[in-house]
């Protein structure tokens, strides 16, 4: 059952990801990217990571997808397909480097099973993950409370900075 689900999800995921790159219509590409995010969430569900799946749908398919669509809508000359690009050669070099890095990581990684990976929190499989994620993140002894708080303050600062940037001073 899980294996069948995996293959269905994998086919949807890979084909939608390819379509995102290959389609000329940017709006449809963005919509397919949202489908792609859903596929990743479905993969998380087959791995018993329920909280992560919901967060994936909420943040990527919900927030980031909408942000992308909004950015596309504010872009000019969309009806002529993808924006005009001249930097073919640098783009090729960069994407080849990225591909080489990914392939290197995939080959170099030791794909052990889950039980052999060092665990942050002792946790039985097949159990709801929410409370264990909370313990791993906010535990008083070896949690990540301070980085978490710093990250949230950073995001707040970015938010306020964005508001200040778009706000016009005085006339015009």
């Amino acid at each position: 059952m899980t294996e069948l689900a995996f293959w269905v999800i994998a086919i949807v995921l890979v084909s939608s990801a390819l379509a995102v790159v290959l389609l000329r219509n940017v709006f449809r590409a963005a919509l397919l990217l949202i489908v792609c995010f859903f596929g990743v969430a479905a993969l998380y569900i087959t791995l018993n990571a329920d909280f992560l799946a919901a967060a994936q749908v909420l943040i990527y398919a919900g927030a980031i997808g909408i942000l992308l669509l909004f950015a596309i809508m504010l872009t000019r000359d969309l009806h002529s397909g993808n924006p005009f690009h001249r930097l073919h050669l640098p783009a090729l070099v960069l994407s080849l480097l990225l591909l080489a890095t990914i392939i290197g990581v995939v080959i170099g990684t030791d794909w052990t099973t889950i039980s052999e990976v060092p665990q942050v929190v002792e946790m039985p499989l097949d159990e709801p993950t929410t409370s264990y994620i909370a313990i791993a993140l906010f535990d008083q002894d070896n949690g990540f409370v301070l980085p978490f708080e710093i990250a949230s303050v950073l995001l707040l600062a970015a938010l306020i900075g964005a508001v200040v940037l778009v706000r016009r001073e005085g006339k015009d």
Partner: peptide
């Protein structure tokens, strides 16, 4: 994750 599921699916209507 019932409530979280509702929040996540609820954000789809915008799309």
């Amino acid at each position: 994750i019932g409530i979280l599921y509702i929040v996540a699916i609820g954000s789809l209507s915008v799309t």
